[in-house]
Amino acid sequence: MGFTDKAKSKAQEMSGMAKERIGDVTDNERLRAEGANEQSAARAKQAGQHAKQAGRDVRDAFEK
């Protein structure tokens, strides 16, 4: 889980938030849903990255 992966996921999440808010303001249901979907995808990626890192931390703890 490199810095670029974290940054890309966070950027995708922020983009989704912006789309969702713009959809709220303009009463555009499609844009609101697209933003929510983007946020969910980004959060799922982040959760996967955190799980991988936790696995590495456990492995490293046993190797010491």
Rank of each mutant, 00 (worst) to 15 (best):
M1D: 10
M1R: 12
G2T: 07
G2I: 04
F3N: 15
F3Q: 15
T4G: 04
T4Q: 13
D5H: 07
K6M: 09
K6G: 12
K6E: 05
K6Y: 10
K6N: 13
A7R: 14
A7E: 11
K8T: 07
K8E: 01
K8C: 06
K8I: 10
S9R: 01
S9N: 07
S9P: 08
K10E: 05
K10W: 04
A11V: 10
Q12R: 12
Q12S: 10
E13I: 10
E13L: 11
M14F: 05
S15N: 09
S15F: 11
A18I: 13
K19G: 03
K19C: 07
E20V: 08
E20R: 13
E20M: 14
E20H: 07
R21K: 14
I22L: 14
D24K: 15
D24M: 13
D24T: 08
D24P: 00
V25R: 15
V25W: 05
T26Y: 13
T26A: 15
D27E: 15
D27R: 13
N28E: 05
N28W: 01
E29W: 05
E29I: 06
E29L: 09
R30W: 07
R30N: 08
L31A: 02
L31G: 05
L31R: 15
R32D: 02
A33E: 07
A33L: 06
A33H: 02
E34A: 05
G35A: 05
A36E: 13
A36I: 11
A36H: 05
N37S: 10
E38P: 00
E38F: 08
Q39Y: 07
Q39E: 15
S40Y: 11
S40Q: 10
S40V: 11
S40W: 03
A41K: 04
A41S: 08
A41G: 09
A42P: 00
A42L: 01
A42W: 00
A42S: 06
R43S: 08
R43C: 04
R43D: 10
A44D: 13
K45G: 02
Q46L: 10
A47Y: 10
A47F: 11
G48V: 08
G48R: 09
Q49P: 04
Q49A: 13
H50Q: 15
A51C: 03
A51N: 11
A51M: 14
A51G: 02
A51V: 09
A51I: 10
K52R: 14
K52F: 00
Q53P: 07
Q53I: 15
Q53E: 06
A54V: 06
A54E: 13
G55A: 09
R56S: 09
D57E: 10
V58N: 05
D60G: 01
A61N: 03
F62P: 00
E63L: 03
K64P: 01
K64L: 03
K64D: 03
